[in-house]
Design a binder for these strands. Structure first.
Ligand SMILES: [Mn+2]
Ligand SMILES: [Mn+2]
Ligand SMILES: [Mn+2]
Ligand SMILES: [Mn+2]
Lengths: 221, 221
DNA sequence: GGATTTTTTTAGACTTATCTAAATTTTAAT
DNA sequence: ATTAAAATTTAGATAAGTCTAAAAAAATCC
């Protein structure tokens, strides 16, 4: 239906507009995709021609419903393949993104739906990101940034904001994988460093930068 | 490393030269790939430039060792993915080829090797075609064309020569899937039609065309 | 509000992969 | 050994996707 290149642009626009629904700028796409702004402008014209985006010269773009649907299905495929790679083929969570970038372009709705069933209809991928279902519905979850917790609060690690292998490997070292139970023991105002208890046993100093990139779910008290 | 297009040409050349080791003609590739002979000539020059084929103007091409290695790994990926789709995702053997055509271009040696292990190192794909191992070694098998059997001989269906969905679905109807045990009951010289016993119970008339496209392994008597 | 900086678009060029039509080479036939 | 037919290559075009440099529009700054 659409080329891999077109799909990648749609996905970039989707991810750039997923929280704010403001129009996405040419430069934002250009940076995200490591392509020149000129190339982006070219592509935006073509995507608009195909009714995948609403494009107003100099004003940025928004996805049409077709465009959003296509991007959502791409995200679905990407995340389901990541689950497959981690759960079935035992890859580590920092190794799967590049492969999923390729696998997400495999065209077969039947394939992705069967994969979904095979995996037991997972709701979240190995990085804690929600997997849209066959109708494009995301599962929402009550979550906050680890850094925002108060001293004494307990929580469970449910996701990451950064996806770089370096960050993920660092989290492995800190034993802060998904599912880890933590309690804030101390909060240093100097630079935002936190002292964490990691259950059942373990304690770590965690920098503000790390704390800012982890999503947690607060534990009921 | 190489584009999907380049890989598809290498695979076509490989398949066209796998039995005869004669050079492959421009026209043969052109027909196999549904592209004009002019386009093929263009690509052959580029593949020769990259040392993937030996190309002599007007004389056809052969694969270099790099070219053959690349093509073999493509065949490996294609067939392993077909096994995955059939054995794990329960697709029928006539449904998987197009998906495998896409999946074979996913680039990750680690992925294909893990898939191989995950599937239990299968030696043959759902159509009975041999799957090269990580070193590119194919498993050979004693096999003959069904039509060549004599009356009274028993055999097991182990592969197909044709891969079209129509043919494969027809074989399903005839209960002539892989593993089926057959015995030749009668051979009509008029047009080569055969009367088969299909164990444990069942009997079918099978046209010469069908018989020519089925590989069987003779049973020891 | 006019000048300056930033953002975006346009112009022109390049690469890959494809096509049709024409020219050339090889093969087959008389 | 010519000649006709078939196969192959060359020439010239086109579309997708990319780039750099220059022009135009929008945003920012006294
Ligand atoms: Mn990813
Ligand atoms: Mn992910
Ligand atoms: Mn196949
Ligand atoms: Mn096959």
């Amino acid at each position: 239906m659409f080329s891999s290149t077109e799909e990648n642009y749609l996905k970039a626009i989707f991810n750039l507009s997923v929280r704010t629904k403001n129009p996405v700028s040419t430069n934002a796409i250009s940076q995200r995709m490591n392509t020149s702004a000129a190339s982006v402008t070219d592509m935006l014209k073509r995507l608009a021609e195909k009714d995948l985006i609403n494009y107003v010269k100099y004003k940025g773009v928004t996805l049409t419903s077709t465009g959003r649907k296509t991007a959502t299905m791409l995200v679905r495929k990407h995340r389901l393949w990541e689950v497959f790679l981690v759960e079935q083929l035992n890859f580590a969570w920092d190794e799967v993104h590049e492969m999923a970038e390729q696998l997400e372009h495999i065209q077969s709705e039947e394939l992705v739906n069967r994969l979904d069933r095979y995996l037991g209809y997972p709701k979240f991928d190995p990085h804690g990101d929600p997997i849209p279902d066959a109708n494009g519905q995301f599962t929402y979850r009550q979550q906050v940034i680890l850094s925002e917790l108060e001293v004494g609060e307990e929580a469970i690690v449910v996701g990451v904001k950064e996806h770089s292998p370096e960050f993920l490997q660092f989290l492995d070292r800190l034993h802060l994988q998904l599912g880890a139970q933590v309690m804030i023991q101390e909060h240093f105002d100097y630079d935002g460093t936190m002292r964490l208890k990691i259950f059942p046993e373990g304690e770590q100093l965690v920098s503000n930068k790390v704390g800012q990139n982890i999503y947690v779910q607060k534990k009921e008290k």
